[in-house]
Design a protein around this nucleic acid. Sequence first.
DNA 1: TTCGTTTATGCTCCCCGGATCATAATCTCT
DNA 2: AGAGATTATGATCCGGGGAGCATAAACGAA
Lengths: 83, 83
Amino acid sequence: MHQIARTPKDIGNALRKARKARKLTQGELATQAGIWQRTVSTIETSASGAKLDTIFDLLAALDLEIHIVPRSKAKPGDLEDIF
Amino acid sequence: MHQIARTPKDIGNALRKARKARKLTQGELATQAGIWQRTVSTIETSASGAKLDTIFDLLAALDLEIHIVPRSKAKPGDLEDIF
DNA sequence: TTCGTTTATGCTCCCCGGATCATAATCTCT
DNA sequence: AGAGATTATGATCCGGGGAGCATAAACGAA
C-alpha cells in the first residue's frame, strides 16, 4: 500500500494516512513540524495548492521522503533508473 | 540514479535533470505544463518554496509521479509498504 | 569570436497559503 | 447521551509565488 501522488490531494491523503499510522494528532504533528494544526488540517483535506516548504516540513516530521518516478513504471519492486 | 527529494531544492534539481534527459528547453516544458519559462527557471534554481500545484504541473508534463517513502528505506529496489 | 539559443532576472499586480487566535463541528469512548 | 479530545473553519494580516512582459546574461555551436 505504498503511496503514489500525482496531485496535491494525493499528498494530503498520504500525509493523513502516515500521520494516523503513527498515531499522531494533527496538533502533535504540527508542533513537530513547526507549523499550525490549522495548516495540517487544510493540507490533509483540501490539500489546496500548499507550498512545497510546508509539505517538506511535514514529510520530515513523519520521517518520509519523496521519490520521483516515471509514471509508467509505477510498480513497487520495480524501481530503477529513472532518467 | 533515481531521484530522491527531501527539500524543495532537491525537487528543482530532479526536475531539471528530467527535463534535460528529455531534451526540452525550459520554454518548451513551460508551455507543455501551462506555466512560464520564468517560473521553470526559478523552480529549477532556487526552487524557492514553490507551490505544489506548479510542481505537479511540471511532473505531469514530464510524465513523472511522486512516491512517498520512509527515509530509512530509501534504497532503490527496496520499495515496499510504507505505512 | 560571433551569432543564435537558452536561461536568469527586473518589475508590477494579484492571489492565496500560512501565521495567529478563537470557536464551531465532529468524532470517540464510556 | 454526555464529556473530552480531535478536527474543521472564520477572520485578518503578511509575505511570497506565479502571471505577464521584457531584457540581460550565459551558454553552444560554427
